[in-house]
Simulated assay, not measured.
Amino acid sequence: MANKNLKKYKRNINELRDVAAIWWPEELRAESATASIIPILLKTQDQFISILTLCDQTPEQVFDLISAAKFSANLFLKHLVILADYGGEPLSRLNKNFQNVFPLNHPDNRFIMEFSWREKDYSYNFKQLPVKTLNNRKLGIDGTTLIKEQSLDDLKKILL
């Protein structure tokens, strides 16, 4: 019996390739990426706060500041999501109920968000939402996509 088990472990490289896991399984890769998010966020926290602090003229100024600082848009969005404690589940629910939350601007046929900032009223016409699926991966803020820098686009701008 011991001889039979021993033969099982004496394989050549081709036999090992057939049964071995050459790459990390998806669950380990996801766990590793998630674990590496915290150091990235800690390292960039001061720059994130500086951008927010400098944004004092209009809400849209944040877009210029992110670009000028060469700060990754998806990383900035991840900081905001954590600050607001607004994760993937609420994003998905918001997207599914988008038409109930935001009114439709009939002349533009786009949904609008009206808000006040520093005692002044603003409105924002959504260019990308609603979408079929809105989640952390699509926004580039999950563990595996966060490590790849992404620039500002209309999808990220609406959430900043």
Rank of each mutant, 00 (worst) to 15 (best):
D121N: 14
L160K: 05
G143H: 00
N105T: 05
P130A: 01
K132M: 12
V101D: 00
G143E: 00
A2T: 13
I13L: 12
I158L: 11
D153A: 04
K96M: 07
P90N: 03
S32K: 15
P39W: 06
K127Y: 04
L139W: 03
L94H: 02
L139I: 05
A73S: 06
E149S: 15
L42Q: 15
L80K: 13
H106C: 06
P59F: 05
P90R: 04
E15L: 07
L41S: 05
A35H: 10
E26M: 07
S32Y: 14
L139H: 05
G143P: 01
K157H: 02
F48C: 01
L91M: 09
E15R: 06
L160P: 01
Q47D: 09
M113E: 11
L129N: 02
F98T: 04
N135Y: 01
F48N: 00
R137H: 13
L75M: 04
K70C: 05
F102C: 10
Y9M: 08
N12V: 04
E119R: 10
F76K: 00
E27C: 06
K157Y: 02
D64K: 13
L91I: 03
E114S: 11
I147Q: 14
S32C: 13
L155Y: 03
K78T: 07
Q99N: 08
L160V: 13
V101Y: 02
Q150M: 15
I22T: 10
W24D: 07
K7I: 11
R110M: 08
I51M: 06
K7R: 12
P107E: 05
A2Y: 14
R29G: 05
L65G: 00
T34K: 14
Y9C: 05
I147N: 08
L129S: 03
Q99S: 13
R118G: 02
L83M: 09
T34M: 08
E31H: 10
S32D: 12
Q57W: 06
P90C: 02
Y122N: 07
D18P: 03
Q57I: 09
L139A: 06
Q128A: 15
Q99L: 07
K4F: 12
L41F: 03
W23I: 09
G143D: 00
L52Q: 13
S50P: 01
D108W: 10
K120P: 00
Y9T: 09
N14G: 06
M1W: 11
T44S: 08
K156Y: 00
L52N: 14
I112N: 10
I40A: 11
K132L: 14
E114K: 14
Q61H: 07
F102G: 08
Q128Y: 07
W24M: 09
H79M: 03
F63L: 14
K7G: 02
K96D: 11
R118T: 05
E60Q: 15
P107Y: 00
T53D: 13
Q99Y: 03
V19P: 00
Q57H: 14
Q57M: 08
S151G: 13
I158D: 11
P90L: 04
W117A: 07
V19Y: 05
